[in-house]
Design a protein around this nucleic acid. Structure first.
Lengths: 368, 368
DNA sequence: CTGTAGGGAGCAGGTGGTGGT
DNA sequence: TACCACCACCTGCTCCCTACA
C-alpha cells in the first residue's frame, strides 16, 4: 500500500544514508566492523568501582550502596553504555531472541501472523529473527534451519504449511524449544475441532440453512495442511447435513487462480453455492461468475474465509469467516514462551475463534 | 488467507511441540538454557588436531593437508558441530545479522517489502532481526532502537513512514550502517522524481488524456511521507496540465476509510475522476460511489496505486500503478550491503518502477 | 556475621608468535 | 618450506569465591 521509498542512489545525503562516517571503522577487506563501544570495565574505571559492581547493577542486584550506585549510574550515562548481547549470551548461554520461519506469499495472512508474533515477542522482551522461505524450496529450508541452529536462540516458532516442511522442521533439532504452528487434524483430540473446521462448518451450515443443497468447494493447494483441513471440514459438514459433498477444486490461494478456475468450470451441475477457501479466491470466483452472466448472490451464493479488510467492500460484500491472524501469531509466541519457561501452555480458545460474518454474497437458494 | 493453526493446547504431542525433552536443560528458575553443543575444542580432540586447525578449516584457510582435513571433517560430522555465532561475533566484532524496522499495518505493502528484504538478506548470508512497531508509538520506537543497538548487528534497515519516526532513527546512532527507506522529495535532486511522483503523474496524465479536468485526490494520512509525496505529485501533475488541483482529502490507507469518506463527500463539484492514494482506498471509494448511484467508470473514473493482486478482480477492475514492494525491500538490503562493504551503491532504477496498469475503472470523461 | 565489593575463571572462538617435523 | 601444534591472550560479560569493613 504505501510505497515508502528511498532517495535515488547518488543523490542521498551520506549522513542520512548511514552513520558510518563517524563510528564505523573499515577493514582492509572492505568489511565494516562494529563500533567500539564502552564496556563494563570502562564504566567501572570511570565510576571507580570494580567491573563486578557494574555488572551487578546492570542485573539489578540489590546490595549496592546508594552512593556507589549513583556513581555507577553516572558513569553509565556519561559513557552511553549499552550492553553487548553477544557477550552476555556467550557467558550465560541464554538469549532473548526467537527464531521465526515464515513463508513468502502475496496474501496477507502469514505476514499478519508474524506481526502479531513480533509484537508479542517484543512485549515479552524478545526479538524475532525472521527467515522467509518458499515452502517448496527444500534446500533453502534446510539451510535456514541450519543457520537458525547457530544463532543462540531462546526458541523457534514456525508455521508448517505443508507436511514436507513440517517433517523437515521436526527432524531439525534446534536444541531449543520449537513450536510448530500447524493444525493436523489427526492430532487433535476427537472432541476438538480445528479452527478451519469450525469456520468451514459455520459457512456450510449457513448455506444449507439458506436452502442450498448442491454446494461446491473451491479449495487451496492440496499440499497445504490448512487447505486440506478446510476440504475435510467441508465434506464432513455436508455429510452431517445429509448432503452429498462434491469433489473439491484446487487453487493456489490467489484471486487469479480462483478466477481462472471459475471461468472454465462447468455450470450445469445445479450448483447454487460455492465455498471458496479464502477471500481472495472468492473474489476471483465472483468476478468470473459475473462475467459469465451468473448473478451473485441471486444465482449463486459465494463465501470466503479469513475476512480480510477488503472483503467488506467487495461487490457484493463478502460473507466470510473471521480469523484473527495477529492473535495466531501471539498464541505461537505465548506457546513458545510457556515451553521456554516450563510453564503452563496457554489456552488456544482465548486467542482465536472463527466467527461468521454475514454480508451480501449469500442469499436463499434460487427456486429451480 | 491461510489460517495455518496449531493443535489445541493440551492435545498436542509433546514431541511435536518441542524438542525440549531431550536436549534442553532447565534452570531452577524455570528458564530453559541453550543446549550444550560441541565446540571446536571437542572437535579438535576427536580429530587429534589443535583447535587452531579446526578454526582454520572452518574459516576456509587453504594450507591444510588433505589427511588432516579429512580427520577434521569427520570429527565435525560425528559431533554434529555447529559454530556458535555469539562467540564468533564476540571474538571478531562482526556479525551476519541485519536489523529491520517495519511498521504494523493491515495493508500488504510493508510486509511485502520485508519479504523482499528478508530474501535478499538470506541470499547474501544475513539474517533479519525484525522489529515491528506502530509509527505513532514513540516510546516503543525508542525502546526498539535501544534494543537493536545492543544486538551486534552488521547494519540496520528501516522504513520511515513519518518524519517523526525518521528523526528518531536518524538521531539514534546504531554504531553500524543504517539505511532509511524514505522518499523525502526535498532530498532528491531536481532531476529525479520520486516513485510516488512518477506513478501519480502517470495516473493524472491518463485521466487528463481521457478528458477529465476536475480530478479529486483522496490521500493517505497527512503525516506519512509517502502520502504527502503523492499529494504533491498530484498537484504538480494537475498544474502541469493547466488544471486546478483540488484540496486533497485524507484517509488512513484503508478501504474502510475510503468508503466512509466517499459516502459523505459532496458530489456536486463537477468531479469526474478520483485519484485514490492506494488500491484499498480506491476499493472503498468505488463501493461508496456505487451505493450513491454514481456509476464507475461511466459517471466517475477511479484510480488506485500499488496494484495489489486483488485489484485486477475488483468490480470494475482497477486502473492503477504497479509498484514492486519486494524489489523495494531488496533494494534496501543491497543499499545497506553496499554501505557495509563500502562498495558502490546500487542504482535504484534497476529495482523499481511505477508502471501504469490500465483496467476498467477509468473511462472518458462524461459529456456534461 | 552481614553487607558490600573485588579477583579471576570461563563462555566459544579468533589471532599472533614460536617452534617442531 | 609446507604444515601444524602449542602457548598465550583477546572479545564483553557472568558468576563463583574470597576479602574487607
Amino acid at each position: 500500500m504505501v510505497g515508502v521509498t528511498a532517495p535515488l542512489a547518488g543523490s542521498a545525503d551520506p549522513e542520512v544514508r548511514s552513520s558510518m562516517s563517524t563510528r564505523v571503522a573499515t577493514d582492509e577487506d572492505g568489511t565494516s566492523k562494529l563500533s567500539r563501544a564502552a564496556t563494563i570495565y570502562d564504566v567501572a574505571a570511570r565510576a571507580k568501582v570494580s567491573h563486578q559492581t557494574v555488572s551487578r547493577y546492570l542485573r539489578k542486584y540489590p546490595g549496592i550502596r546508594p552512593e556507589t550506585r549513583e556513581r555507577v549510574e553516572l558513569a553509565l550515562a556519561e559513557l552511553n553504555y549499552r550492553p553487548n548481547q553477544a557477550a552476555r549470551t556467550l557467558a550465560t548461554n541464554r538469549s532473548l531472541r526467537i527464531g521465526a520461519f515464515a513463508y513468502e506469499m502475496l496474501e496477507v495472512g502469514p505476514s499478519q501472523i508474524m506481526q502479531g508474533a513480533s509484537r508479542r515477542a517484543r512485549d515479552a522482551g524478545y526479538m524475532l529473527d525472521l527467515v522467509t522461505l518458499f515452502p517448496s524450496d527444500d534446500e533453502a529450508t534446510q539451510n535456514a534451519i541450519n543457520e537458525m541452529y547457530q544463532q543462540n536462540l531462546a526458541g523457534v516458532i514456525a508455521s508448517a504449511p505443508t507436511d514436507r516442511v513440517r517433517e523437515a522442521l521436526e527432524a531439525a533439532d534446534f536444541g531449543v524449544p520449537l513450536y510448530i504452528e500447524t493444525e493436523r487434524e489427526d492430532e487433535l483430540g476427537a472432541e476438538h475441532e480445528s479452527l478451519n473446521a469450525v469456520g468451514t462448518r459455520k459457512l456450510v451450515d449457513h448455506l444449507v440453512d439458506q436452502g442450498h443443497t448442491t454446494i461446491l468447494n473451491i479449495a487451496g493447494p492440496p499440499s497445504w495442511i490448512a487447505s486440506l483441513n478446510r476440504v475435510n471440514a467441508y465434506r464432513r459438514a455436508m455429510l452431517h447435513r445429509g448432503l452429498e459433498p462434491l469433489d473439491s477444486l484446487h487453487t493456489d490461494w490467489s484471486a487469479a487462480s480462483g478466477y481462472k478456475l471459475a471461468r472454465q468450470m462447468p455450470l450445469d451441475r445445479g450448483v447454487t453455492a460455492i465455498v471458496a477457501t479464502n477471500d481472495q479466491v472468492a473474489l476471483g470466483v465472483v468476478r468470473a461468475l459475473i462475467e459469465r452472466g451468473v448473478a451473485v448472490p441471486d444465482d449463486m451464493s459465494v463465501v470466503g474465509f479469513d475476512d480480510i479488510p477488503e472483503s467488506e467492500f467487495f461487490l457484493p460484500p463478502l460473507t466470510t469467516v473471521q480469523t484473527h491472524f495477529d492473535m495466531q501469531g501471539k498464541y505461537s509466541i505465548d506457546m513458545l514462551l510457556s515451553m521456554i519457561h516450563n510453564s503452563e501452555a496457554p489456552v488456544r480458545e482465548d486467542y482465536v475463534s472463527a466467527d461468521l460474518v454475514l454480508r451480501s454474497s449469500t442469499a436463499r437458494a434460487p427456486v429451480a
